[in-house]
Every structure is written in C-alpha cells, then in structure tokens.
Design a protein around this nucleic acid. Structure first.
Lengths: 189, 189
DNA sequence: GTCTATAACAAGATAGAC
DNA sequence: GTCTATCTTGTTATAGAC
C-alpha cells in the first residue's frame, strides 16, 4: 500500500471511530505512518482526505449490501439474511455515524455520499418488498417504502442501542424483532 | 435563570447540536453569556457540566416518554401514539446522539445516563407489548423484548435516515412502516 | 515525495485580582 | 461570583529545504 492509500485507509478508520470533528490530520498521519509534508503533498487537507475516505466507505457498504440482497430466496428471506449478517456491532455503522457530525452535513461534498447510500439502500429494499407483496408473500396493506425505511432504521437504531448498552444484545434483539414482525405480517397475507 | 442554570442549558443545546467532542467550554460560555471565571466557579470543567446536562436531558426524555406510554388505549395504540408524537426530527435524539461520541462512552459518568435511558425505555415498551400479547391483541409468537428493541431502534434509526436525507420524510416512513408491521401482526393474532 | 520550521488560532484549564 | 492574565497542548495548515 502506498502512502496516499495508507492515508485514506487511516482516515476511514478514524472517521468511523471518532467522526469528522474528532479526527485530526495529526492523528491520520500518525496512523498512516506518514509525515505532515507527505499528507499535504497528496491531499489538499483534512476535508479532501475525508471526501476520498467517505466515498470509499459508502461504495463498500453498497457493494456488501448488494451481495446479500441479490442472493437467493424469497424477499423476506433475503431481507432476513441481510439483517442477520455478521456485523461489528459496537463499532456502529461507518456511514450512519457521519449523520451525527454537523460539519459533515454542512459540507455537500461530505454529505452527498451519505445521502446516496441510504437512498439506494431504502430503494433496493423497497423493490424487494414490493415483489414480495406482488407474489402474495406479504399482505397488500404493507407499504413497501414505509417498510423498507423501518427495516433500515432498525439496523441504524440497533447500533445506537448497542452502543448505549455497551453490548451487542439490543442490536440482536432489534433484528430478531424486525424479522419477527415481518414473519407475523406474512401470516396475515 | 441564574448563571449556573444558563450554563447547563447552553451545554444541553450544544451537546445536542455538536456532541461532546465538538463542544468547547468557550462556546458554552458564549451561549450562556457567562465569562471564563464564572464557568469554572460553578463547575469543575467541561466534563462536570456535561454530566449535569446529560442527566437532565435523560430525565426529560424519560418524563416525556412516560406521559405518552402511560396514556389510554390498547398496547399497540399507545405505542403508535408514542411513535407518532411530534418530534424535531432533523435535530435528532439528544440522548441517542451521545452514543456516537467515543469520549462519552469512555467516561462512566457520561455514559451511565445514556445506558439507563434506553434500558428503561425498552423495558417499558416490552411490558406494554407483553400485556398486548396476554390479551390476545398480538400473537404469542411475537417476543416482547425483541419487538420493543425493534420499535425503539426504528425511532433512533429514523433520525439517522432523516439527517442523511436532509429531510424528515424517511423518519415518517419508518414510523409508518413500524406501525404497519405491528398492525399486520395484529391481524395474525 | 518527504522532512522540518513556523504560525495563527482554539481547547481546556489555573491563578489571582477585584 | 466574576474578570483578566497566563499556560500548555493540539489543530490545521503554509513555506521552503532536501
């Protein structure tokens, strides 16, 4: 890995752990094993590095989610598989985390990849749920867009509860709860 | 409002907007209209002020949630009322927000009120859901603890989605989605 | 490309005058 | 109780040597 690459990867880790405001160029340089001059040679500054880091993190999330959601099984099965995927729960979501940073929301270059990630994810889930409704797996009364938002929110909120509790348990409960509700709804179809 | 009071209220606002790391003593003093010496006379420092602020914010949340959850109606109705309560969505949850701050999680005095708030909230919702299950409003297959976690997570995650989108719409969708799933589950009881 | 020097400013607090 | 002065360290760069 060359220097520029190490700088981006270090920035990704630090943004995940400490957010944008909590991440200093100094900390990035230390973690990347790069000097001051080196960093400012490859990037214009903290914001420039953060843009590269956030873009890559957002692309990653999208790629991994797609792998799960394009898999085999009925709609509800695929969504359950996505929800149950092994996650480093206590670290939280590297994209969702950024929404708590006012400096990220205030800068369109930093904010846009976050917006696009969740737009895409909710849309993808909604189209799966719409399919399930069309085939009769889910009742007609269930709105695909609303249900998709609830599913994604369950994950994002699960991270919050887990970090509040200092344990992954509330996250696992929330996931089981969401799947339980989807299955109960199936019974009503 | 005396000086100490204004300092605590300013700290509450800033913690909500910018988190612990993003909030400086200087900013607190400015917002409170108090001087450096004044702040350090009433409080030992930033952490001391934050403890007071977080405690009060956590108590507030609990009081307001209890008002909704102890109201009239069936279990599902009360939970729907709680979910639908008018909220300043784009500001996010003043308690949930703190879980993204590693400095808060690392300090037991700052972390404890956050933990207790969500423990209490999930517990309260679980007992309402258990009631609903006992009376046959909800099917026996629905686990109260899991479902409660899913409901709270929907709210917390809804805030995340709304801030990502720069609009309250995803939050409202998630809430409608959760209520829709609860009602569909009711049909399966 | 990487290093060191420098700089202006903010963070977070202490000390002592008033 | 509040004010101003002072202090150390960190932030976020820029400049220029190597």
């Amino acid at each position: 890995m060359d220097t520029a690459e190490r700088l981006v990867e270090s920035t990704r880790e630090l943004l995940w752990e400490r957010g944008y405001t909590g991440t200093s160029p100094r900390a990035i340089q230390e973690r990347a094993g790069a000097g001051q001059g080196s960093m400012y040679h490859h990037f214009r500054g903290k914001q420039d590095l953060a843009v590269a880091a956030i873009r890559r993190t957002a692309d990653d999330l999208r790629t991994r989610a797609a792998a799960e959601l394009d898999g085999p099984g009925t709609g509800v099965e695929r969504i359950a598989a996505y929800l149950r995927r092994d996650r480093d729960v206590l670290r939280g979501c590297p994209v969702g985390r950024l929404t708590q940073d006012p400096d990220v929301l205030a800068d369109p270059a930093l904010h846009a990849p976050v917006t696009e990630t969740f737009d895409w994810l909710c849309g993808r889930l909604a189209s799966i749920l719409a399919e399930s409704r069309a085939t009769g797996e889910l009742p007609a009364a269930l709105d695909p867009d609303d249900t998709a938002a609830a599913v994604v929110a369950t994950l994002q909120g699960g991270y919050v509860l887990a970090r509040a509790a200092g344990s992954r348990e509330p996250f696992d409960r929330a996931v089981r709860g969401a799947i339980g509700l989807l299955n109960a709804a199936k019974g009503a179809a």
